[in-house]
Computed example of a mutant assay.
Amino acid sequence: MSSSSVVVVTGASSGIGRVAAEMFVARGCRVFGTARDLRKAPALPGVEFVEMDVREEGSVQAGIESIIDRATRIDVLVNNAGMMMIGAVEETATAEAAELFDTNVFGMLRTTRAVLPYMRQQRRGRIVNVSSVLGVLPAPYMGLYSATKHAVEGLSESLDHEVRQFGIRATLVQPAFTRTNLDANAPRARERIADYDRERDLVALSVADSVNSAPEPHGVAGTIVEAALGPWRMRCTPPGEASLLTKLRRFMPAGPVDASLRKKLGLGAS
């Protein structure tokens, strides 16, 4: 993929998406960053911001069409926009689960469907879907978030099989916790069941500690840029904890991995 590629990064107003957009600019790309509200997207040199809400079909179509009008093509789509939530599965209302899926999965589907006709016409393209290590290693009290990322994993593999005939490839980036507002400000499920209080609070505290000690977004953003512009790989994992956890999941027996995860979260071994 050429360094002069036209790149679209969703959720580019802050965090990983903003740093990735900046890195694409440094690589000589023409970069469009999307944000739900342009008033909350501080200017970034070299990045052209487009208002787009991935939860709204019309907003996505209008945003992508405006980019095509300006750049005539899209070479790379980075599906980065997402949200997180902490809560027991039993505490999570269907409406809350639907909101998570609407952003993390259906939002990705909307942007991908909007971009693919142009990529098919030009017979090239790269789609980078930001997943999570929780897409391969689910954690307690993040069940619905993990479910969305498992869906992203399956969708992306199927998509890659389907579009490679057109010179397009899809790939996944699987970060661990990163010091961003998404992780730090993760909301909790609104319904609280007292029986879960002790463990849920332990997990929430562990997540907060992990975020506070996590690296800045640059490592994940750099992995996104390489996944977009470098040789194709189905899964790209940032160095550090994310790489370690995915290897543990793949090569270690389930029992020790389960015990290690519960210990890290401050839960009992049972």
Rank of each mutant, 00 (worst) to 15 (best):
S4F: 07
S5T: 06
V9I: 12
G15F: 01
A20H: 04
A21I: 00
F24T: 06
V25H: 01
C29M: 02
F32N: 01
F32M: 01
F32T: 03
G33L: 05
G33F: 01
T34N: 09
R36N: 06
R36Q: 08
A43H: 08
P45I: 07
G46R: 11
E51T: 14
D53C: 11
E56K: 13
E57H: 11
E57I: 05
G58H: 05
S59T: 02
I64V: 10
D69T: 10
A71W: 01
T72V: 07
R73F: 01
I74G: 00
V76C: 03
N80M: 11
N80H: 10
E91G: 14
A97C: 11
A98M: 13
A98C: 08
L100G: 06
F101I: 11
T103H: 13
V105W: 09
T111C: 14
T111A: 02
T112L: 07
A114T: 06
V115C: 09
P117S: 11
Y118I: 15
Q122L: 05
R123V: 14
I127W: 02
S132G: 06
L134Q: 13
Y141K: 05
Y141L: 03
Y145R: 04
K149A: 08
L155M: 15
L155C: 10
S156Y: 07
E157R: 15
H161I: 10
E162P: 09
E162A: 11
E162N: 11
V163T: 13
V163Q: 15
R164T: 15
V173C: 00
V173W: 00
Q174C: 12
Q174F: 04
Q174I: 00
P175F: 01
N185K: 15
N185V: 00
A186E: 06
R188L: 01
R188S: 13
R190Y: 05
E191R: 12
D197V: 12
D201V: 01
V203S: 05
A204S: 07
V207R: 06
D209K: 12
A214S: 08
E216C: 04
P217F: 03
H218E: 10
G219Y: 00
V225F: 00
V225K: 00
A227Y: 02
W232T: 02
W232L: 06
R233D: 03
R233C: 04
M234I: 14
T237S: 15
L245S: 04
K247W: 08
K247I: 09
L248V: 13
M252L: 13
P253E: 00
A254W: 14
P256G: 03
R262F: 05
R262P: 03
R262K: 12
G266S: 04
G268W: 05
S270W: 06
S270C: 04
